[in-house]
């Protein structure tokens, strides 16, 4: 029991980070039906921006989080403006290749500047709490708390504000939205900015949890978050979060009960099985009705 509770906390931490990244994939897909494969690298840059910031000025965690989110948001907008917008009317495959290209450019630029893995300085006191044999660290509480906070804020933004309504409208019919006088380009840019900011926040949190930062850190995690978004129903925000927590739990629990060699085999087989029965993902709906 104690063992399972400990593994549940591990799963919660992993799931929270996957969820923040998966949201970025899902939001962009929601408004543009495009898979932003550069997102995993924006996530990686979140960790590097934090390193850079702390090297310049030692700031507390909260400030670092805000600055990193702002920086990645700006980056996301720039990518959208200069790489994706010119191709919006191009065949979908061109947009995907551009996204892959953007990701590789970001990754290899980082690799060129910093080929070495770098240690992430400690931003928080390393306190550990014991609850009947279950260990939870301050860091885990912060990661889970910040992730949940950001997710709730996003959910509110999408469901309760006019911006969210515009975003949902673009998802369902972009041409009509422009006719109605809603500035579609601005809304899409802001969507990219929010998605990238969440990715950057995830990068920072991930860098704190696993404090060795390298240019290739976005690849595996980015893929897993993308899978999570698809499982939950890409384009659907609550689905992305659900998918991420399922993926995190399946990964951790597979290792908990089976030899760890089987982790990816079992978790991905299970996820494929979900897609066989729910081809649009758990909360996804067939085209036209997204978000």
């Amino acid at each position: 029991m104690k063992y399972l509770a400990q593994q549940a906390i591990n799963a919660l931490q992993l799931g929270s980070i996957y969820a923040l990244i998966a949201l970025g994939y899902s939001m962009v897909y929601g408004v543009l039906t495009m898979i932003n494969f550069a997102h995993g690298d924006v996530f990686m840059l979140g960790a590097f921006f934090c390193l850079l910031l702390i090297a310049l000025v030692p700031v507390p965690f909260w400030l670092a989080l805000i600055v990193v989110m702002a920086a990645t948001a700006l980056l996301g907008t720039l990518i959208e403006r200069f790489a994706y917008r010119p191709l919006r009317k191009a065949p979908r495959v061109s947009a995907i290749i551009t996204a892959l290209g953007c990701g590789l450019v970001i990754q290899n630029t980082t690799l060129g500047i910093s080929p070495y893995a770098r240690p992430m300085p400690r931003l928080l006191e390393n306190a550990t709490y014991q609850f009947g044999g279950v260990t939870i660290t301050m860091l885990q509480i912060v990661i889970i708390g910040v992730s949940l906070g950001l997710m709730l804020a996003l959910d509110f933004l999408i469901r309760k504000t006019s911006f969210g309504m515009a975003m949902r409208a673009i998802a369902s019919d972009r041409a009509m939205v422009s006719l109605l006088g809603i500035p579609a380009n601005e809304i899409i840019a802001i969507t990219f900015a929010i998605g990238a900011a969440l990715g950057g926040a995830a990068g920072l949190l991930y860098g704190m949890a696993y404090p060795v930062v390298s240019a290739s850190m976005g690849i595996t995690v980015g893929w897993k978050a993308f899978v999570a978004a698809v499982i939950g129903g890409i384009g659907n925000m609550r689905g992305a979060v659900l998918g991420a927590f399922i993926l995190g739990s399946v990964e951790v629990m597979t290792v908990a009960v089976l030899p760890s060699t089987y982790r990816d085999l079992i978790s991905y087989s299970l996820l494929l099985l979900i897609l066989v029965f729910k081809p649009y993902g758990l909360l996804g709906k067939p085209a036209l009705h997204k978000a």
Binding site: L14, Y206, M217, T220, E251, M253, A256, R263
Partner: peptide, 14 residues
């Protein structure tokens, strides 16, 4: 065991 590129080892370590 784990795979190259893994960063989370908490399940195995638990």
């Amino acid at each position: 065991t784990y795979s190259t590129g893994d960063r989370d080892f908490s399940a195995q370590l638990t």
